[in-house]
Structures are given as C-alpha cells and as structure tokens.
Design a binder for these strands. Structure first.
Lengths: 189, 189
DNA sequence: ACCTGAACACCGTTCAAGT
DNA sequence: ACCTGAACACCGTTCAAGT
C-alpha cells in the first residue's frame, strides 16, 4: 500500500501526457520539472531515478485502466458493447494529441527501459488479456479457454497495431479503417 | 538518382540496426561514429542532420523491403505462401535481437521526427498496403478493391501490433500466438 | 574530398547545502 | 520534509581548421 503526495500526483499526471506524446526517451526531467513548478533535482526526492518514475507511471496507467474496465463490465451487459468501449479508449488516446497507449510506446522503447519498467509493461499486457478473455468468453461461452485467451491476446495486439499505424500516419481515420477491417475479418465482433 | 559512398553504406547499415534495437531517439551520433570508425562530426559530411539520416534510413528500408517482396511475388505463385513469407519477415526481425520494424518504431516516435522522416514512414506504410492489396486480391478475385485495401491495411497494422506486443514481452512465442489468433479469426489466411 | 577538436546548449544524475 | 545550484559525463550540432 503506497500513498502519494500532491506533488507526486502532479508529476505523474504531467509525465504521463509527455511520455504518451513523445516517448520515454524524450521525457526530459528539466521540462517535466518546469511543468510541475519545481527544479529537476527535486524530482529525485519523490522518485529514485527515471526508471523509478517510469515504473510508477506504467503501474498507475494499468491501475487506472483496470478501474475503468471493471466499472465498464459492471454496467454494460452486452459483450460487444464492452469491446466497442475498449477500442474506443485507444481511439480517444489518439484524439488527444495523437497520443499512444503508454505501454504501447514503452514496448517500442524496450531496450532502453529499466527492468522495473519492463515488468510493468508486461503486467499491463496481462491485465488487458485477462479482461478481454472474460468479456470474449461471455460472448462465446462454448469456446475453449485457451482459444479465448489466444483471441484476447490477438485483440490487444491488433488494437495496439492499429494505434501505432494510425499515429504514424497522423490520422485517426486510419485507426477507424483498420478496425473496420478487423470487424469484417471477424477478429472484432 | 543518388549514389552512396562506401562510408555512407556503413553508416546506414550500422544506424539501421541501432534504431531497430533502441529507437531513433536513442541513436547516438557518437556511438554510431565509433561503430563506423570515424568521429561524430564526420557524419555531417554525409548527412545534413539526424533527421536527414533518419529519412535516408527509412527510405532505404522501404526500398529493400519492396525489392524483397517483388522478388517474392515473382517466384511464389500461392498467395497464402506470400502472406506467410511476409509475416515471416517481421518474425525474423524479432529474432535478430528483439528488433522492430524500422518504420514501426519510428511511428511510435512520431512527435520527435523531422517532417522528412515522417514522410518516409508514410511511404513505407503505403508500399506495404499496395503489395498486400495485390496479393490478397489475387487470392480473393471477387472482392471489391476498396475492401481489399481495407483488409491489406488491417493486415499491416495487425502484424505491426503483434511485433510491438511481442517485443514488449521479450518473447517471440507471443508473436506466434497472436498470429495464430489472427488466422483463427480469418484476418490472415 | 574527407575528417577532426573544440565549443555550444542540452540531457539524467548526484550531492552538499539551504529552509 | 522539501527544495535547490552546481557539477559530472553525456547528447546533437556547428565551425574553423587540418590533410
């Protein structure tokens, strides 16, 4: 159980937006500190290193998504609507300044990540596969558990890929077109 | 028509591997120069800036892929075998040091790219969609051209996503599992 | 034509010092 | 408890100078 101070929250929020927009490597402690209103050296009072901040960032990102998805599943009965809301999350990220899923962009930068950050990225993927598996299984009750899991992993990868290519094109319409293609193929309901 | 010197080729080859492994932002001119056997300032004799090198890198990457794919299509009649070889290219990239498609990792770093580099990333995507469209159309001759193109774009995004998630997991088996999921869904033949 | 050392403003990080 | 300035070795880039 960890508590965070107000300053820590400000740091996390600002850093998240910066990393989603420009990547982990481009995150400058001096720029981040300027945004928060402190000096770059002060960040080290709250986080031991850039890796430490990155890990906290990824963990919080996963926690927030799980909170949203849990709530979504509790209030939305239709599994197809659940999947639609799921993909909408990734779409909205693009809409907000052509940003990427935090863990998607971290995956691309894997070789530069501290082990603690890599671990959080893997946890994030596992969380997504878990939730997707539950939703997909509720839609196809007769499907074998292993097949459902494989499907869930494919959905995660496909949506991350759609976001990556759309971002590279700088055009949300590409995201929509790719997802339409997934639906025609039967990957998405 | 542009010719490249021997030194330029050495720079391009070394830089490609470095960017695929660690990303564009992490590419250090000092490290690159050390690899080539010159000083970092000398790179500016061949390329006007990091952006200029990045653009040359992406263009060459696209050219090389097109050359391979054209040859592949000329020698392989079966469209399913063509698609299988296509995905194999991405798989092999992962196998060589957990590397990523150059333009995939550049797409993730889009906000930090010079406009000339972004343009090359978009060209790369277009090249892939074009080739995939031709192959898929040969497999489904009755499908409408727009639908084929949408399918092709979906395949590109899906494979890029599979690579991204697999790299984040540091495990090629994830790539294989995702692709198996695509095949079951019908996205891949 | 091709290469270099030295300088510039940047970066993450450390640390002794301030309140 | 919280913050800072100054220093370290890095970075891309420039440029005058070398052969």
């Amino acid at each position: 159980v960890s508590t965070t101070t107000e300053t820590q929250e400000t740091i996390l929020a600002a850093a998240r937006l910066m990393v989603q927009a420009r990547g982990y490597n481009s995150l400058s402690f001096r720029d981040l500190a300027k945004e928060v209103g402190i000096k770059s050296a002060s960040i080290y009072y709250y986080y031991p290193s850039k890796g430490g901040l990155g890990a906290a960032l990824a963990r919080r990102y996963g926690d927030d998504l799980v909170a949203y998805l849990t709530e979504l599943r509790a209030t939305t009965k239709d599994w197809k609507a659940c999947i639609a809301s799921y993909t909408e999350v990734f779409r909205n990220t693009l809409l907000r300044g052509n940003r990427m899923c935090l863990c998607g962009i971290l995956a691309a930068e894997r070789e530069d990540l501290a082990p603690e950050v890599t671990a959080e990225v893997e946890r994030f993927n596992a969380l997504n596969v878990q939730w997707l598996s539950e939703v997909l299984a509720s839609g196809k009750p007769k499907m074998a558990a292993d097949d459902v899991r494989q499907w869930a992993l494919a959905v995660l990868a496909a949506v991350e890929g759609a976001q990556l290519v759309a971002r590279g094109s700088g055009d949300v319409a590409v995201f929509d077109q790719v997802l339409a293609g997934y639906r025609v193929a039967g990957l998405l309901p």
